[in-house]
């Protein structure tokens, strides 16, 4: 019984962090229809940047975090401006391939600047675990889940009510019509990349303060794709529902079949979802015409 509750809470909390990273994907997809395959690498590079700020330069936490977010903003702006904007209107194959090139580049850049390959952020959250009923829960996981949830709510509100958020949704719907209404489409794209990078940076710091900074972060990015696929690519709600589902499947599968199976579960879910219900739980099915 206590194992069960423990698994439920751990799974949900891990899933929330996946959902946060997947949110960064959905942001870009919603506004510009670019599938960002460099998700894990964005998480990796901003975690390493936070490592530099907090461990190598020994800044206080708030300053280091602010600088990391500033770095993420700059990174997002640069990526959109230099790599994605020249490709507007190109076939989807090029758009996917350029994010692959980006993934390779960022991965090389991290290995170039931080060749040690393994780093530990200072612990942000209290380390003590506490009891809910008979189960022992790690406190930091709960903190991470709460922060993800808050970010999700903030982003949803932003998209629902803020001018820029509405412009982003409109751009996703019809770029030409929106341009005719004098919405700066370029700025919308660049904003969505900036948001995605910031979300990835926060997610990265959350995960790597719990575990460690290493190549595993890139694999976390791949696992987040299963959240995106299961939830449906257009939907924030999909991310936040599918994240915990993936997290729970992973934890329960891990405790049932051993920890090596745990790594495989998100990918099996991807295959099953794509075979059965390719547009996910909340995604909209595209009807194509010639």
């Amino acid at each position: 019984m206590d194992i069960l509750i423990q698994n439920i809470i751990t799974g949900t909390a891990t899933g929330m962090v996946y959902a946060l990273i997947a949110l960064g994907f959905a942001l870009i997809w919603k506004s510009s229809r670019v599938a960002n395959l460099a998700l894990g690498q964005l998480v990796l590079i901003s975690s390493w940047f936070a490592y530099s700020m907090l461990v190598q330069f020994k800044f206080p936490f708030w300053l280091g975090m602010l600088l990391t977010i500033a770095f993420a903003i700059l990174l997002g702006w640069l990526i959109e401006r230099l790599a994605l904007r020249p490709l507007i209107g190109q076939p989807i194959l090029s758009l996917i391939a350029i994010t692959l090139g980006l993934a390779y580049f960022l991965e090389g850049l991290t290995a170039f600047i931080w060749p040690q390959g393994q780093g530990n952020l200072p612990k942000v959250f209290p380390q003590t675990s506490f009891q809910i009923g008979p189960a022992m829960i790690q406190q930091e996981l709960l903190w991470a889940a709460v922060i993800s949830l808050i970010l999700f709510i903030l982003l949803s509100v932003f998209f629902k009510y803020h001018r820029m958020g509405i412009a982003m949704r409109a751009t996703a719907d019809d770029q030409l019509a929106v341009q005719a209404c004098a919405v700066p489409v370029n700025r919308v794209f660049s904003m969505s990349w900036i948001f995605a990078c910031v979300v990835a940076a926060i997610g990265g710091v959350l995960i790597s303060s719990i575990a460690a900074i290493n190549y595993g972060l890139v694999e976390t990015g791949f696992k987040s794709f299963s959240v995106v696929i299961l939830g449906g690519m257009e939907s924030f709600l999909g991310c936040i529902v599918a994240g915990p589902i993936i997290g729970l499947c992973e934890t329960f599968g891990g405790s049932q079949f051993g920890s090596s199976v745990k790594e495989l579960i998100p990918f099996i879910i991807i295959v099953i979802v794509i075979m059965i219900k390719p547009f996910g739980l909340f995604g909209e099915e595209r009807i194509e015409r010639i």
Binding site: L87, I98, F105, E107, G108, F112
Partner: peptide, 21 residues
């Protein structure tokens, strides 16, 4: 030390991006 291990990946990624653009 060991920074050049990333050089390969970095240049290759850059080449893909530049070619696509």
């Amino acid at each position: 030390t060991g920074f050049s291990s990333g050089l390969n990946l970095m240049l290759f990624g850059l080449a893909i991006i530049l070619i696509l653009i």
